[in-house]
Amino acid sequence: MKGRRRGRPRSCPDHVLARIVRLRRTGARYVDICASLNTEGIPTPGGGAHWYPSRLSRLLRTRDAQRLADEVAGTSTPARGR
């Protein structure tokens, strides 16, 4: 199973994840990002109505979030195995 992604596929839309990454890179606190997402009624990846800082922290540790953060920072590295 080399090269295959384990676990469930990511359910957070790309535009939401990109926004969270950008906000965090500019220094926004988890609680402030959550407040913004909650105010706008953006559902969580699991379909919930309320974002929590702990969920953002886990989301930002995913491979997709790390890739986006690298792209935003301009330090994108080529994908392995390609």
Rank of each mutant, 00 (worst) to 15 (best):
A65D: 03
R5D: 03
P78M: 08
V31F: 02
T75I: 14
H50C: 11
S76D: 06
Q66C: 08
S76T: 13
R24K: 13
G48L: 03
A49F: 07
W51F: 05
S36Y: 03
L68D: 00
Y30T: 01
L68A: 02
A49I: 07
R61G: 10
S36H: 06
L56N: 01
R58A: 08
I33R: 00
G7R: 06
S54G: 09
G48W: 03
L17S: 05
G7H: 04
A65Y: 00
G47R: 05
T75R: 15
I20K: 02
G41Y: 10
T77D: 10
G74M: 06
L37Q: 00
R61F: 03
G41D: 12
D70I: 03
C12L: 10
V31H: 04
R67D: 08
R55L: 12
C34I: 02
R55A: 13
P43D: 07
H15S: 15
A18Y: 04
G7S: 07
D70E: 15
R61A: 11
R67L: 13
H15C: 12
A49R: 12
R29G: 03
T44V: 07
V21S: 02
A69C: 09
R80H: 11
G47N: 08
T39M: 12
G46D: 14
C12N: 07
G3D: 09
L59M: 08
R63F: 05
S36I: 05
R22C: 10
A18H: 06
A35I: 04
T75W: 06
A73M: 12
A18P: 03
R61H: 15
G46W: 06
R6G: 13
P43M: 07
G46V: 03
S76Y: 05
R24I: 00
R25P: 00
R80G: 05
D14L: 11
R25S: 14
T62V: 04
P53R: 02
P78T: 11
L59D: 00
D32E: 12
E71F: 04
K2H: 14
V31R: 10
R5E: 10
N38K: 04
G47D: 08
N38C: 14
I33N: 01
A79K: 11
L60V: 03
R58H: 12
A73K: 11
H15I: 08
S36G: 05
R82V: 15
R10V: 02
R80T: 11
P43W: 08
L37G: 00
S11K: 14
R29K: 15
S57G: 06
G81F: 11
C12G: 07
G46A: 14
T39N: 10
L56H: 02
R24V: 00
R4K: 13
N38G: 05
H15T: 11
S57R: 08
T62M: 03
D70G: 06
S57P: 02
R25E: 15
T26H: 12
S54C: 13
Y52Q: 10
C34N: 02
P9R: 15
I33S: 01
S54A: 14
A49Y: 07
M1C: 12
G47P: 04
E71P: 00
R24W: 00
P43L: 08
G41M: 09
L56Y: 02
